[in-house]
């Protein structure tokens, strides 16, 4: 690659960093209106829903069943009370077995 690659990388680094750093530094020590802080406290759970669906169904291209099985395994383990690492390893194991026998 030529020089442009490194300039592009610099640009990518800057535009990725700004949305990450701006709120954490600018909002430090500021009190927000109650409604705004209420909405901000909701963000983690709203974002988890949006990150999981629909993408979890597309982990294998063209085979939604694969993602569905993985999703079911993950939710089943999590609802059974398994901790995060067990949910992760268990879901991988279920799909590995499914790929090997399927």
């Amino acid at each position: 690659m030529e020089k442009w690659y490194w300039w592009m990388l610099l640009g990518m680094a800057v535009v990725t960093y700004i949305p990450r750093a701006f709120p954490l530094t600018f909002l430090e020590g500021r009190e927000l209106p109650l409604l705004v802080s209420g909405v901000l406290r909701n963000i983690p759970y709203a974002v988890l829903g949006a990150l999981i669906f629909p993408a979890i169904l597309f982990v294998q291209e063209g085979n939604m069943l694969f993602g569905l099985i993985g999703a079911l395994a993950a939710f089943a383990l999590a609802f059974a009370g398994a901790n995060v690492i067990v949910v992760v390893m268990g879901s991988i194991a279920v799909l590995a077995i499914y790929s090997l026998i399927g």
Partner: peptide
Amino acid sequence: FLQAAMSIALYAMFVGLLVPSMKGNRK
């Protein structure tokens, strides 16, 4: 087979983080 199975990892993690907070909390 392992590559395919491991592609679930991050989503499984999101599920594992979400579900405990979801139990008994309608919001």
